[in-house]
Amino acid sequence: MRWGSLRALAVVFRERGVVALEELEVPEPGKGQVLVAVKYSLISPGTEVAFLHGLPNTPRRYPQRPGYSAVGEVVMVGEGVERVEVGDLVCAKCPHASLALASEQAVMRVPEGVDPLDAVFFELGAIALQAVRKARVEVGEPVLVLGAGLVGQLAAQLARVAGGVPVLVADLVPFRLKRALEFGADHAIDLSQVALREGLTRALGRADVPVVIEATGSPEAVASALEIAARRGRVVLLGSTRGTTVVNFYSTVHRKGLTVVGAHVSTLPSLDSLPGWWTERDEWGAFFRLLRYGRLKVGHLITDVVEPERAPEAYEWLARERDRHLGVIFKWE
């Protein structure tokens, strides 16, 4: 089938702090490519808000197209595509738009029975999964997750799946901590009310913890993660840090024998999974299995499903109203 010239609506960061919905031309899929009519796309709050406002460790180049987590129906396939076919419901690692052109490698069929609104969390699920996998959580071991944003919420659930006991979550926003306690966390530490060490002591009877997953992206939180990690503990840096962290490596890392692991998803192998280092596609598959068998829940993380025309509002919510908004999804149908 040949459709000729195709037009799509897309979210665009026109310049620093400016969000717009624009019409773009989309080419037909070439060799190894897939065209997806998007149903839903999920905002990745930490990354996209940081890129929008040009925070440290972001490109600061505009215009740019945000987003990397969508679900939709395959409407065209290019030459040589074998994994999916027209009519399939797929997840697609692509920007926010009504039509998405992606490589076959960047899409995966959504298993039967999985709600598309749950499936759209596939990429954030994979990001959290690879971080927890790198933490090497042992059954019965306490785990602390710093930050109760989307990836922190997912990491807390996955730490519990991995056998972490108890799982603690620390954040400044009570609304987010309540969600964490409802699904996965055993203890919540409200950092707007209590210092981190005091909160740990109340929950564990000790002021340190063997596994810390840092999911805030705050430079100060990275320093805190290193300080409260126990001797011979592990600290996994899941959040992308937006600034420079000042650390006394002798006292917080060297003398305690800490293992510190960077867990950016771009470090994953591209072809074959290894113990502790799965490919991104294998992590997607694991995410869907966890959903299907009820080990992972994401529906409670959705606070807003909005039309793309409300994109400027949506990013403002996530930047300014963290006590009300968490999982924001664009509905493109």
Rank of each mutant, 00 (worst) to 15 (best):
A131M: 03
L301P: 11
G205K: 02
V306D: 11
V26C: 08
D118W: 07
L89Q: 06
Q130P: 05
G285D: 11
D208V: 01
P210I: 01
D282I: 01
R136I: 01
L238P: 11
E104C: 08
G276K: 02
E22A: 13
L296G: 05
E321C: 04
I302W: 13
I228W: 06
S69Y: 00
A188N: 01
P66V: 10
V132W: 06
R234I: 08
L196I: 03
V11A: 14
V143Y: 07
H300G: 13
A70F: 11
K331M: 02
R83L: 06
S266E: 13
A203S: 15
K331W: 12
Q64P: 00
A319R: 15
T252K: 12
G17L: 00
V77F: 05
V169Q: 08
V261L: 12
A131L: 02
A10W: 00
P166K: 04
L6R: 14
V90M: 06
A119S: 08
V194N: 04
P111D: 06
H254N: 10
S192A: 14
G327L: 05
P166M: 03
G46E: 11
A106T: 03
D304E: 15
A20Q: 13
V77H: 04
L172G: 03
S273W: 00
L296E: 12
I127N: 14
G285E: 15
L181E: 09
T201C: 04
G4H: 07
T244Q: 12
A170W: 06
K297I: 00
R322T: 11
